[in-house]
Amino acid sequence: MSLILYKFVPRNKFREAQLAFLFKQVITWIFGLIVVENGIIKYPHRLFFKKANKASFTFEFFILPAFCSLFNIYYPEQKHQIYKVLHYAFYTSIIVILEIYAIKSTNLIKYKKWTWYWSYITIMISYYISRLYYRWFFRYNNSQPIMKI
Rank of each mutant, 00 (worst) to 15 (best):
F31D: 05
Y91W: 10
K24P: 01
E16K: 09
I121P: 04
F8S: 11
T58C: 13
Y111K: 04
F71Q: 01
F90Y: 11
Y83W: 08
A89W: 09
H80Q: 15
L33R: 13
I4H: 06
I121E: 07
F23D: 00
K112Y: 10
S56N: 10
K79Y: 07
K112P: 09
F49E: 06
A20Y: 01
I109T: 02
H87S: 12
K51W: 05
L3D: 08
A20E: 02
L86Q: 10
A17Q: 04
R11G: 14
F8R: 01
F23V: 03
H87C: 12
F59G: 11
H87N: 09
P10Q: 09
Y6M: 07
I103T: 10
V96G: 01
F59E: 09
A52W: 11
G39N: 12
L70H: 03
K7H: 15
T106N: 12
H87M: 06
S69C: 10
F62W: 05
P44C: 02
P44D: 02
V35E: 01
A102Y: 12
K113D: 10
F49T: 12
N12H: 09
Y74N: 12
K13H: 13
F31Y: 13
N38Q: 07
L22H: 02
Y120L: 09
S2Q: 13
V35T: 03
K24S: 02
S2V: 12
I27S: 03
E60K: 01
I95G: 00
K7D: 10
K113P: 03
H80R: 15
L47Q: 14
A102K: 06
F21Q: 01
A52G: 14
P76T: 13
T106H: 08
F61G: 00
L64R: 00
I34P: 09
L86E: 08
P76N: 15
S105A: 15
V26G: 07
K113F: 14
A102S: 08
L33V: 11
T58M: 15
W29C: 01
R46V: 15
F14I: 10
L70E: 02
I73E: 03
R15M: 07
C68H: 05
Q78G: 09
F62V: 05
I4G: 04
Y83S: 09
I73Q: 04
L33D: 06
L33Q: 11
V9R: 00
Y111I: 03
K84V: 15
E37K: 14
V85L: 13
F67M: 11
Y6N: 05
A55G: 07
I41A: 05
M1W: 05
Y43D: 00
T58H: 14
A66F: 04
L19G: 01
K7Q: 12
R46W: 05
P10F: 14
I95S: 00
F61Y: 11
S119P: 14
I27T: 04
Y101A: 09
A66M: 14
S69Q: 07
A55R: 01
E99A: 02
P10W: 10
Y91Q: 00
I121Q: 09
K42V: 11
F62C: 04
E60Y: 04
R15H: 08
K13L: 13
C68M: 13
L3M: 11
T28R: 01
N38P: 04
V96F: 03
I103Y: 08
K51I: 03
V26C: 08
G32D: 06
A66T: 08
W118L: 11
N53K: 14
T92I: 01
I73M: 07
Q81F: 15
K42D: 07
F14A: 12
A52Y: 10
Y43N: 04
I34Y: 15
